[in-house]
Structure formats: C-alpha cells, structure tokens
Write a protein that binds this DNA or RNA. Structure first.
Length: 260
DNA sequence: ACGAGTACCTGGCAGC
DNA sequence: TGCTGCCAGGTACTCG
C-alpha cells in the first residue's frame, strides 16, 4: 500500500517526466468510482501546464500554473502509470500523446483539490523527539495508532509504522503515554530512518502487494523489512506475534523478543 | 477531546 | 474445478 516512500517514488518519476509540460486532455473514470465527480480537478487540469509535482504525507499534488493544485490519494491499492491500461481507471490525463492513469482497484483513492489537515512529516524540521513527546503525552491509545494518525504525523502507514516501532524496540500496543524519554527519542529517529530508507530504495514491493512506480519498476525496500509481512524477526530470527485486529482493526506484527 | 468501532471496496486466496 | 467467504487496509464517519 502506498505510504510516504511509495508516493515520493511516484512523485519523482512524474516530476522528472512532466514538469513544464502542457496537459492535452483529461478524463474521469466511471461514476461508480465517485460519490461526486471531481469537477474542480478536471477544471484545473484541462488545458493547464504542469508546474511540477509535490507530495505532502501520502498525498500527491500536481501544481498547475496559475490554477492551484490537484490532489491525489492512492488509498491502499491505487497506482499511477504511464500508458498502462486496466479496468480500474479512476482518473486520467494526457501529456502530449502519453496517458497518465490513476488505477484504483479497491476504490479507496481520492482525486480533488482539497488537502486535509496533516501533521509534520518525520523528516520535517518541526518533527523531533519533543514533538513526538507532545503527540504521545497523556494518550491512552496505542503508540502505533497514534503515529499512524495523519493529523499527528504524516506519512506512516502500517508497513513503516511497524518497521519504525521494531527499529525503536517498542511494542505497537503500548499506550502512547507509557513510552520513556529514551524510547521516544529512539522512535522519532526510527520514523525518520525507515522513511528515508524507503525513499532511497524506491518504496516497498511486497509479495502480496503490488506497488510499482509509474514505469512499472518495483521498489527494493522489501528486502530490508524486519517485521511487516514476515513470519520471523529480521533481527533475531524469532517468531513474530500479531495483535490481529486489536489496533485500529489492523494487524500489528511485532517481535516479542526485540520489542518491549 | 478521546478512543473504539465500523463502513467503504474488491482482488486474492484458503478451504471445502 | 469452482464456489464461498474472509481478509487486507487508509480514511471518514459514528457512538459513548
């Protein structure tokens, strides 16, 4: 599922390829993909020129000269491709004769002109141990649920949150307020580390997921994953435990030996 | 304000 | 083989 590193990987390809180019056509996918068709996005893109692509958390933004931005969220199964066809095209536009398509098999994606309220990203200057301490202070909710809350911290989903907690040696079900000062510092650093590694390695393409960049290339982060989608801990080799659906209804793999 | 639960949606797969 | 039913998960919503 696309988290910050996967979206950044997509952004870099699109920015490099289409910055400064004119949009020649726009088409909205079947109405079944929408509650309301994204008219504002169509208006902004039609006949526009791409100033560039930006990213905020897991959101991809197309900046259109003089018209603001169009916002894409890939949901959990969304893919953006150059040229590739599928029955799941939510939205597409053309640059010259080249079609850029947003495929959204499970329809959890979004296209629009509004960006929701988002917290700082772990690599932002505004994010440090002090900020994370403020996020966790007094909170009874699990640390994993809190670091995955995009209003608090933008960019971590289940994979990278699981990896960051493993790197920081903290169990996902721990209450936010129970973390020690040292654990908070380790976790702040771990959030940065796993996301930076993910970006550097072009995202993660796990067996049962299918993240590919717009040109169909897989990422390489999956080789460095220590818990997510594994049966044994990538550090100690011991069996992993899954809290199943108890954290935000999601599975939470962790190593009971490495994580406290 | 907070935390827990659920709806949304469909491809993939386990189990029969 | 072919069917059923469950599971995955980010976000937005409701409820207590």
């Amino acid at each position: 599922m696309p988290e910050l590193p996967e979206v950044e990987t997509v952004r870099r390809v699109l920015h490099e390829r289409y910055r400064g180019r004119a949009i020649t056509a726009v088409a909205v996918g079947k109405p079944t993909f929408y509650r309301a068709p994204p008219l504002a996005a169509v208006r902004a893109l039609t006949g526009g020129t791409i100033a560039g692509f930006r990213r905020r958390g897991k959101y991809l933004l197309a900046d259109i000269e003089g018209r603001g931005s169009v916002v894409f969220h890939l949901g959990m199964s969304g893919r953006i491709t150059v040229g590739e066809e599928s029955p799941h095209v939510r939205f597409q536009f053309w640059v010259g004769t080249e079609a850029v398509r947003f495929h959204d098999a499970r329809r959890f994606g979004r296209v629009g002109c509004e960006l929701p309220e988002l917290g700082p990203e772990p690599m932002d200057a505004a994010f440090d141990a002090d900020y994370l301490r403020g996020v966790l202070r007094g909170r009874k909710a699990s640390v994993k649920a809190l670091i995955m809350d995009q209003k608090l911290i933008a960019g971590l989903g289940n994979i990278y949150a699981s990896e960051a907690l493993h790197l920081a040696r903290v169990r996902p079900a721990r209450a936010g307020k129970s973390l020690t000062r040292a654990e908070i510092e380790a976790l702040a650093q771990a959030c940065r580390t796993v996301l930076e590694l993910g970006v550097e390695l072009g995202g993660s393409t796990l067996d049962d997921e299918s993240f590919l960049d717009p040109l169909g290339r897989p990422g390489r982060m999956q080789k460095h994953v220590k818990v997510y989608g594994r049966e044994t801990c990538g550090t100690c080799g011991g069996p992993l435990r899954d809290t199943r659906r108890s954290i935000g209804g999601r599975s939470s793999l962790h190593c009971p030996s490495c994580q406290r």
